[in-house]
Write a protein that binds this DNA or RNA. Structure first.
Length: 589
RNA sequence: CGGGGUGUAGCGCAGCUUGGUAGCGCACUCGCUUUGGGAGCGAGGGGCCGCAGGUUCAAAUCCUGUCACCCCGACCA
């Protein structure tokens, strides 16, 4: 393959486009890989297409290796299919909707569970047909509230989505594992630094959902990783270690304190530290927010229920409640902050002075964060204006209905597996593997007739790779000051041949080498433009082809220069050895 | 949806305060020179100054409205 820059549809930009903030966006635009058409909507130019095709090739190879078969669904989908799954309504504003000339509703597919399920239902009906795995590489549409970061988060993007269909839970487990392994190979081959993180709580079944994240500062997803073991989870699914369980019986009996005007944790702590503890027959000590128990009033909604119910969550006073994490843990139950009206319904809950002691009697559900361990003693509200209670002990003075990870994770929290400090980082979601179960099969009646003549509901897995996003994420993880630095496998070419100088011999020699390299199967980008050396060098660095071969002033001494884009390393090689040297680089890399 | 900002050539920007021929750099075309780190000189082409209305003899500039876009946040199978 030979790309000539004199004819390549490419215009590089000297300046950064002003709307580009993140490095991948800036460099993909400057390097002429993509152009913006509308917010979150991009055109892919020849160099971009080359990179995209390379990513797709790897994805296809690895899908084939686990026996997944490629299909292709329309992006334009009639409303009725999404009506059947309930997602015409559930997807809300994120769905692109349109009508045909007759006024019939359509949508542009944000994902394709419905079509895969129905296709299989239409073709297969016997247990002998399973297991099955299908995939497609398709353009997806989501009307994001705020597209950003160039192609990292677009409204139109390419995704590989696949689905597995199995007769049994064990079959699903195997399909899930096969996909997970394939994804590891895909992201390794593409040259990613990536982490596999838990995406939903252990309560929902451990490994039911995992995300493949590429750690980078411009990532939109926050995740947590252990500094010592390989535990990693996104912040919604993370579990952290609490302090050791304590013996609550050694705590003094609880005592009600006079604490007027202390509706917040800060005011309460000040008050505690100025109390005359001798009055209560107790030794004076220093208190901090961590000694108090904060009880946050929320409300929850069971799917299908007609009412919201109150929920109180107890967390250490020095912690905030992370609503996103909480929502992730409670899913599919919805959760929201309770408002004044909700609180008014239970007058026993005194704002600012709520304690867990009464909640069981009030029939209000009470959960604690695991940091509030059995036997721990707290200062908390006395359920009376201006009063708090000290030495309120879990297991002695109150019994929560259960635990839920609710606190906002901090850098340095302890790993639930090994106890080492956790670290918060940002990453880009490259892929997601998810054991869907029977949700769609139930909805659409996807069953197979078993050997006993009875129908078995199929269980499904759903697996996605963001293809366009992977290109941007790779740029994000590999760029440097001068430009892009593609790993060889995805680079638009193996070698960028740059003739310099006014001497026609350099151009002729570069042409000769390019032709010879191409015949060896090397992908060559040849800068045959009439431009100054500076322009060519800058563009070569911006475009990010991994090997650069400079044919110029060294010719008089019988050498050409071989440069490694990534390391910056340069070495002269004799003209006669140049082609084989490049070929060795390409094969070795 | 909340906060901040910007709309002038393909890209990056000035001009607006104080109304009067629409400019600069890059890119593009032609000529000559130059050729190892975004070359020089000269000559060119390219504009609904976001849109609509208003004020005025005259509007990129002032006024009103409107639309779009960008950034931060909320949201995000």
């Amino acid at each position: 393959m030979l790309l000539r820059m004199s004819t390549l549809f490419l215009r590089t930009l000297r300046d950064d486009p002003t709307d580009a903030e993140v490095p991948s966006h800036r460099l993909l635009v400057r390097g002429g890989y993509v152009r913006r058409v509308a917010p979150g909507i991009y055109s892919w130019l020849p160099l971009g297409m080359a990179v995209l095709a390379n990513v797709e090739r790897v994805v296809r190879e690895e899908m084939a290796s686990i026996g997944s078969q490629e299909v292709h669904f329309p992006a334009l989908i009639p409303r009725e299919l999404f009506e059947a799954s309930g997602r015409w309504a559930d997807y809300g504003d994120s769905l692109f909707r349109l009508q045909d000339r007759k006024g019939v509703d359509y949508l542009l597919g944000p994902t394709h569970e419905e079509l895969f399920t129905l296709l299989v239902k239409g073709e297969y009906s016997s247990y002998k047909d399973y297991p099955l795995s299908l995939y497609q590489i398709q353009t997806k549409y989501r009307d994001e509230a705020r597209p950003r970061a160039g192609v990292l988060r677009g409204r139109e993007f390419i995704m590989k989505d696949s689905y597995s269909f199995d007769l049994s839970d064990e079959g699903l487990r195997q399909s899930y594992q096969a996909h997970r392994d394939a994804y590891e190979r895909i992201f390794s081959r593409l040259g990613f630094d990536y982490r596999i993180v838990f995406a939903v709580s252990g309560a929902m079944g451990g490994s039911a959902s995992e995300e493949f994240l590429a750690p980078t500062p411009s990532g939109e997803d926050t995740f947590v990783q252990c500094t010592s073991c390989d535990y990693a989870a996104n912040t919604e699914a993370v579990e952290i270690a609490g302090p050791p369980v304590q013996d609550g019986s050694i705590q003094p009996a609880s005592v009600v304190l006079d604490t007027p005007d202390t509706p917040t944790i800060a005011t309460l702590v000040d008050r505690l530290n100025s109390l005359d503890w001798a009055e209560y027959g107790l030794p004076t000590r220093q208190f901090s927010a961590a000694d108090t128990l904060k009880n946050v009033v929320l409300k929850t909604h069971q799917p299908g229920a007609d009412r919201w119910e109150l929920l109180v969550v107890g967390v250490p006073g020095d912690r905030e409640v992370d609503m996103k994490r909480l929502a992730g843990q409670l899913e599919p139950v919805e959760v929201e902050q309770a408002d004044a009206e909700d609180l008014a319904a239970v007058p026993e809950l005194v704002k600012g002075y709520i304690g867990p002691q009464l909640l069981a009697d009030l029939k209000v559900r009470f959960l604690v964060d695991p940091l509030v361990v059995e036997g721990s003693a707290w200062v908390t509200g006395a359920n009376e204006e201006g009063k708090h209670t000290a030495f309120v002990v879990r297991g002695r003075d109150f019994d929560p209905a259960g635990e839920v990870g609710a606190v906002e994770i901090r850098d340095g929290d302890r790993c639930a597996r090994c106890g080492s400090p956790l670290q918060i980082a940002r990453g880009i979601e490259l892929g997601h593997v998810f054991a869907l179960g029977r949700k769609y099969a139930d909805t659409f009646g996807l069953t197979a007739l078993g050997p006993d003549g009875k129908p078995v509901t199929i269980t499904m897995g759903s697996y996605g790779v963001g293809v366009t996003r992977a290109v941007a994420a790779l740029a994000e993880q590999t760029y440097d000051e001068a430009g892009l630095c593609w790993p060889r496998l995805v680079a638009p070419a193996d070698v960028h041949v740059v003739p310099t100088g006014k001497d026609a011999a350099a151009v002729a020699e570069a042409e000769r080498m390019a032709t010879e390299l191409v015949s060896l199967g090397v992908r060559v980008l040849l800068d045959d433009r009439k431009a100054s050396p500076g322009v060519k060098f800058k563009d070569a660095e911006l475009l990010g082809v991994p090997t650069i071969l400079v044919v110029g002033r060294g010719l008089d001494d019988g050498v050409v220069e071989l440069r490694d884009r990534k390391s910056g390393e340069r070495r002269d090689v004799p003209v006669g050895d140049a082609v084989s040297a490049v070929h060795a680089e390409v094969s070795g890399g």
